[in-house]
Amino acid sequence: MYDNILLSRYFPIKSKMHNMDPFCKMLCTLLFIITLLISNSLTVIFILSLVTLIMMLRSNVPFRLYFKSVAKTVPIILIIIIVTLLFNVSYLIILAILIKVVLIVLYTSILTFTSTPTEITIGLEKIFFPLKIIGVPTSKLALEITMGIRYIPILMEQIERIRKTQASRGVDYENARFGGRMFANISMIEPMFRLSNKRSRELYTAMELRMYTVYNKRTSYRTIHWNMKDTFLLFLHLIILAIFIYKEVLGYGSIFDNFFVRWIWF
């Protein structure tokens, strides 16, 4: 049942996108989503999709996987189409919304395909940095997230073991006809609580024995450095945001827009 689930979608190869600072990637994702969501200009959407395409090529991840992640959003896309058709929205706007959804899925896929869960937590810790001034313990938060992520496969393994022993002794909901998997998961709850409690106590003592304390300043084994590439990518996103502000907030964008609209739609 849980044999063929990939916990993180990290794709283990070497590429230029893999080498980048996760903090930069996350910042860029944030900027990208903000720009995409508030912008209505076709030019901006076009530029953003071009950036996404180049980044996808740079990541060396096969396109098949990107299409798979887009295919998973098909139900959401269908709901959007139905709702927008009900409210009598023009086709051009519906298309723009759909392109936005697909672009967001693709862009976030780049982030998850090219960075491990640990890298993402490191990025999160850096993004939370401004909160440190107010007194939020960001490193503690990041540690909790890392440990949580580390804990998922252990629990999954445990569930799999109990499921196997139950199945081999006659309780096999998975091959049952109706709602089998649901019952299989419900029957797992009680023993799981007991076993995970035991496991976490073991982990706690093991960490305690190695003199682990949360409040000490910690160094990490793999340090990630900010490169020129990161600066470039961040500036690219900032420039796109600037173009958007120039065109839509200040209202200077008619020349570009008319040209692209004519070129694409007519």
């Binding site: 073991r161 196997k164 139950q166 199945a167 081999s168 006659g170 096999d172 091959n175």
Partner: peptide
């Protein structure tokens, strides 16, 4: 008929501690 199959085959797993749940 998965249950019929499993009724005829008994399997003792590697770590007994991890397979108890009662």
């Amino acid at each position: 008929g998965a249950n019929k199959l499993r009724f005829e085959i008994g399997i003792v797993f590697q770590n007994p501690e991890e397979q108890f749940f009662l």
